[in-house]
Design a protein around this nucleic acid. Structure first.
Lengths: 335, 335
DNA sequence: AATTGCTGTGCACACAAGTGCACACACTGT
DNA sequence: ACAGTGTGTGCACTTGTGTGCACAGCAATT
């Protein structure tokens, strides 16, 4: 069992009361310089570290922030968490991490655990399967500071940090059109996430605004079975031999699409341009390097953490504020 | 401020003492079924969650495990953390995450914070720049359960979970030799990590055992400046036109090496075979797909967490045990 | 010399939850 | 009727830290 050093131990060794030690360590004016020196010296030697646990009682602040992440192995989310830590560590908060593995059940459990650990606030991105929100409503009722990032439940009246998926998709498709592409397919996620829906609407509107038709046969609602992409592209190439661009909702699926196209003897970008979304590492590792939309993970993490701190520290009531990170196209070789 | 529900609140609303509520919730035999029912009903309605903080006082167990990671955005480490969570969540531990960004200073701070939060144990991988170990010695002195994973300080007498880097590299190079390669270069990391050193020794011994010479001119001690790889390969191709394989210490650098080779008009694997290390997502996303060595992140996380739990629960003294995960070659297109 | 002021220290309590112990009450048996 | 037994509940104390308040000790002022 760990032998943690407490102020009591220091007090015992110095023959003074624990309150004197406490005051000496917090540089209280009514403690003599001599006593302070003695206490600090011994604390240093013993490697004393204040028990945050005990401190949380009096201050009713645990100095813990709950981080709810759908899948940490997605590079974007790892970057978000890094951004959060940068901001939170500065203010002496630690991160309690919960990876929900895209499972609603894990998400509910994560929220419960956050309550038990009495976290000072929660940063959450919902799973792809989240269709109940009682656990979040409950947090709001108990006035636990909560900020959504990236994957948000729009109808819940709390701050949210998101990328402008609609605009990003619109710009991406507009870019393809400006490159002279006439027949642009789209692969989207067949789930109830605003992100992919907004990207879908951005795609549609960009086409419409350019006077082009939206063709449902050229839209794949992808359910994360790679084979569906191959089937879709094969059929699309047969039915629409003039297909000359695909806009894909994430870089992994875009990479897979490129592989399928190349298998069919299509050159990318000469025959078919491919545009991804997120700027994951894969984008620069593929051949050709993928044009994509920057999904600024670190920045999103920082903004979300800053917003949460503002809510915690200023005791602002939760507001339905939306912080939007503007999209940025990254044009590489695939378009 | 968050309105957390306490047993006191429940007791107040039901007009009984908090100890009765406490006993009712823990199904104490001396509480009537009627009382238990009333308490449980109200607890459910109010969304009561026990305060782990308060509980840690009496049990002197915070139910927190400190996770020290060099860089969460490296896919391998994200997988390790996921593996850890799988094991720890089952036992009702939560993860306090510290990303050290490969900085010794951050690592020292992370250890201090772990002490302040009174974590029940720590899982750590050291940074590439860690050359002082006082912070870890201090943990050992205070008997805080500690297990190293992947990046370990060998001389510290605590459990470690590692992949057999030597054997993995040996097998990888042996595979290249079996494919008929005669002139095999190696790119290693020029840092004091056992991992890359062991991979280097594995490379050397595989060559020697096959009766081949180790040529220092064909070894690059890489300092994470990509330009160095281009310079190295260009010079190696000029000086040794028969260069027909490169074994690289990680997949990202391997991917970059493939790009450089292709730029020089070399076909991979026909002219030069390339072998990576880690099986990061990039390995399957590149063209050609990269042969590499499996670096089983999730499994490593699970093993490390299990070992830590064993130390915590059985109160085993820290031992200098080494858990070795056997290497597994993944042969794809690049060899 | 007595009073006042100032400074340093210690005591007691707060916080949330759990537990040993004591006590109250109901019921049983003699 | 009363001791004995069993059951349900509350009190008080525990944990580490910080803070309000009281008080001790000493110096300065009256």
């Amino acid at each position: 069992m760990a032998k943690y050093i407490t102020i009591k131990e220091i007090a015992k060794q110095l023959g003074m009361s624990h309150s004197t030690v406490s005051r000496a360590l917090s540089d209280h004016p009514r403690i003599s310089a001599k006593t302070k020196e003695k206490v600090r010296k011994l604390a240093g030697e013993l490697g004393y570290q204040a028990n945050i646990n005990a401190h949380s009682f009096r201050s009713s602040s645990s100095r813990l922030i709950g981080i709810i992440v759908p899948d940490l192995s997605i590079h974007f989310f790892a970057r978000v968490v890094q951004g959060m830590q940068e901001v939170l560590a500065d203010k002496d908060y630690a991160l309690v991490l919960f990876d929900t593995k895209e499972q609603l059940e894990s998400e509910t459990m994560a929220v419960e655990r956050c309550l038990r650990y009495r976290v000072d606030g929660i940063l959450a991105a919902i799973t792809m399967t989240t269709d109940k929100f009682d656990h979040f409503s409950h947090l709001i009722k108990q006035e636990v500071p909560l900020v959504f990032y990236d994957r948000v439940a729009n109808f819940l009246p709390i701050p949210k940090v998101v990328t402008n998926d609609y605009q990003a998709a619109y710009n991406a498709v507009q870019h393809l059109i400006q490159r002279g592409r006439k027949q642009i397919a789209h692969i989207t996620a067949s789930i109830n996430l605003n992100n992919s829906n907004n990207r879908l609407y951005g795609y549609m509107d960009a086409l419409k605004d350019a006077g082009m038709n939206v063709n449902e046969a050229l839209i794949l609602y992808y359910k994360f079975e790679p084979a569906a992409i191959e089937t879709f592209i094969t059929k699309a190439l047969k039915d629409y031999p003039d297909l000359d661009a695909i806009f894909v909702f994430n870089d992994y699926a875009a990479n897979y699409s490129v592989n399928v196209l190349q298998k069919h003897g299509k050159r990318v970008p000469e025959d078919v341009a491919v545009m991804g979304f997120s700027d994951e590492p894969v984008a620069t590792h593929m051949t050709p390097q993928l044009s994509t939309v920057k999904h600024a993970g670190e920045k999103m993490g920082q903004l979300a953490a800053q917003k949460l701190l503002a809510v915690i520290e200023k005791k602002e009531p939760l507001e339905n504020e939306k912080i939007i990170i503007d999209p940025e196209l990254i044009i590489r070789e695939s378009t």
